[in-house]
Amino acid sequence: MEVEGVIVQQDPFLYASTDYSYNITHHAFEQEKPNPQNLHIYGSNNGGYWDSPAAICLPGKRRRVKPTKNKEEMENRRMTHIVVERNRRRKMNDYLAILRSIMPPSYTQRGDQASIVGGAINFVKELEQLQQFLEANNHANKNLFSNFFTFPQYSTRPSAAVEQRQSRIADIEVMMVECHANIKVSTKRHPKQLLKLVTGFQSIGLTILHLNITTVDQSVLYSFSVKVEVECQLTTINEMATTVHDILGMIQEGNL
């Protein structure tokens, strides 16, 4: 099918009149539906011929402009969301693995997230009960080594005995037979406390022959068997207990 048309354009500045003739040939129709890509324009302008795909739109049709920028922004947001979600899942898996490792195996028999969190809740509840039990028996724990002392020169427990001296530093008991002495010390643990005690004993003329150490929580019991050297200036058990008490006081105050 051929459609012939004539367009007359007048330009008052360049030409009096110019004629343009176009022949629009429709090469093919599929199921009677127009396809703009199959339309070709044949025309002439001053004797020249040209042929190009039609850049025209049928009546009632408009060309759509692709929202390239919006698509790029949406793609960037999608990729950012994927990275954030991946990091969140990785951190969650790491935290669950740590939580599972610090609990007894009986609380984490299954490895899914719900089982791990549920086991952690039960584990924390039992720890709270254990803490309450320990706090209730805290007073008994403080006097744990009380049975090791018969007649201490210094005691952290109130007593009616006249020869005992109240102390907040330690329980100290000294027993001596000829040139040998047995010194018991119950006190709180401190960094490098034993090393400083040994150095202090040597400075006052006491040579350590045997040492026994018992620790419970933050408390420690030292049992020293020492030899009283000739150069030692301490002649009584009270003097020796007072000197040991002074050494412990300097250690806890950081002066030794």
Results as ranks from 00 to 15, higher is better:
M1I: 00
F13E: 12
L14Y: 14
T25G: 00
F29V: 00
E32C: 02
E32P: 02
N35K: 01
L39N: 00
I41Y: 01
S44A: 04
S44L: 08
N46W: 14
W50V: 05
S52I: 03
A54F: 00
A55F: 07
L58P: 01
K61S: 05
R62Q: 10
R62F: 03
R63I: 06
K69M: 13
K71H: 07
E73Y: 08
E73T: 13
M74E: 11
R77K: 09
M79Y: 08
V84W: 09
R88K: 15
N93H: 15
L96Y: 13
A97S: 13
I98W: 15
L99S: 12
L99W: 08
M103W: 09
S106Q: 08
R110L: 07
R110G: 09
Q113F: 15
Q113H: 07
S115F: 11
G118I: 11
G119C: 07
K125N: 07
E128H: 07
Q129F: 14
F133N: 09
F133S: 09
N138A: 14
N143E: 13
N143P: 11
S146A: 09
F149L: 05
F151H: 02
F151V: 00
T156L: 03
T156P: 01
T156S: 05
R157D: 00
A160M: 13
Q166E: 09
A170G: 03
A170N: 03
V174H: 00
M175P: 01
V177R: 15
N182R: 05
K188Y: 09
R189T: 10
P191Q: 04
G205Q: 06
L206V: 04
I208E: 04
L209G: 08
L209P: 09
I213A: 03
T214Q: 08
V216C: 05
V220K: 04
V220I: 04
Y222G: 03
Y222N: 03
S223Y: 02
K227A: 12
V228G: 06
V230E: 12
Q233L: 10
I237Y: 02
I237K: 02
N238K: 02
A241H: 00
V244G: 00
I247S: 11
Q252F: 11
E253C: 14
N255S: 15
